[in-house]
Design a protein around this nucleic acid. Structure first.
Lengths: 201, 201
DNA sequence: CACGTTACGGAACGTTTGTTCCATAACGTG
DNA sequence: CACGTTATGGAACAAACGTTCCGTAACGTG
């Protein structure tokens, strides 16, 4: 029919998401994106429409992966607290290794939520979705007796999610493993039973 | 001797800090700064040297104010937990009112810590200072029996500080009061009396 | 009231920004 | 093997970027 594309659309979006996550939106120029994606400007605008639209696509793609990973960690077998601890541990591994595929979600919220209505709208909807998902898991866990019901599930869900995101912030300043683990240990305490509990040691 | 300046240096730095805090570094152009400060470019470069240097000055000025406010809240009379709760309440008031003089510290860390070594160095030093300050207050509080010694003071200090900063992140997406209060209530739980959990990392 | 010094306003600079345009290349189809 | 269609590379664009420069204005001093 016609000349075929020489690059994969979705793959390019993921590369863009990584670059935006590393450098931020404003600091990432279109020319830098062209280099990273290995395409020329005409292909760029034909495929993505422009910088801002590519960012929205990248943000959505990143969010989807993030949500799936979250679901994967929190829907296994075992106590909810253990599952969430595993999630934090994995996140710490990633952050401490310096790989630094830091969360585009965090960056987008800080850099663009106030100035770009589209970004705010997306994040608002996306984070609500995450919170609902985790809140439901928490409700199920409390019904099993896994965790106490000291807080409204939605509040607890939001707290846990934002604490996880916050690890990315902590890591921006110090990505030492014990720093991150120290933070995570205390954040996780919100899931401990507040009544006296048996010492398992 | 010579023609006197028509604007106050420190006042201008604070205005710049507010603008940078609202819009971020890259999104704030020099022309926008000139408008906000009400000066012309020649005065700008004579007084501050350039955009980047003004940012560093603004960051330092903001940090000083932030540190003093923190000290003010945490060195009064009363239990440490109450003092920290007052701090969070005041922060929530500010964030919920939408005034939105959001923390330049948070923005600088997310947007620039990875790309501008000067910013990282400053934040690293500044946050260490804050953590030490709070850790000392925590040590004193535990010696009074105010709070339990479940965690190393430095870890607890870092957790509390970053939780406070994290409210700024939460507010970016939803600045509803009950959202922020829900988060703060759970974060504060780290200061409640409890025996150390056996599974601390 | 002239002088030296410093601050001011604003035009101008070169560079980089995001985007558009067009001639050319690479396909599937008739 | 020409044709229609779509992708590509790169030149070109206006606008905005951070910064510099210069003539002028506003002081304190002699």
């Amino acid at each position: 029919m016609a000349r075929p594309k020489e690059f994969d659309h979705d793959e390019a979006v993921l590369k863009a998401a990584a670059l935006f996550g590393r450098q931020g939106y404003e600091a990432t120029s279109v020319r830098h994106l062209l280099d990273e994606l290995g395409i020329s400007s005409s292909s760029f605008y034909a495929a993505f429409g422009g910088k801002e639209q590519l960012f929205m696509e990248a943000l959505a793609a990143h969010a989807e992966i993030e949500r799936d990973q979250l679901r994967l960690f929190l829907t296994g077998t075992g106590a909810f607290r253990d599952q969430f601890k595993n999630l934090l541990d994995a996140l710490i591994d990633e952050l401490a290794s310096g790989g630094g595929t830091s969360s585009l979600t965090l960056r987008a919220a800080i850099e663009l939520a106030a100035s770009k209505p589209d970004v705010l709208a997306f994040l608002s909807r996306y984070l609500s979705e995450l919170i609902n998902m985790v809140a439901n898991l928490i409700t199920a866990a409390t019904e099993r007796g896994d965790i106490s019901e000291a807080y409204p599930p939605e509040h607890l869900a939001r707290y846990l999610l934002f604490s996880a995101f916050n690890l990315g912030f902590v890591a921006k300043v110090s990505s030492r493993r014990d720093t991150l683990e120290g933070y995570a240990a205390i954040a996780l305490h919100a899931l401990d039973d507040h009544r006296p509990h048996p010492v398992i040691l």
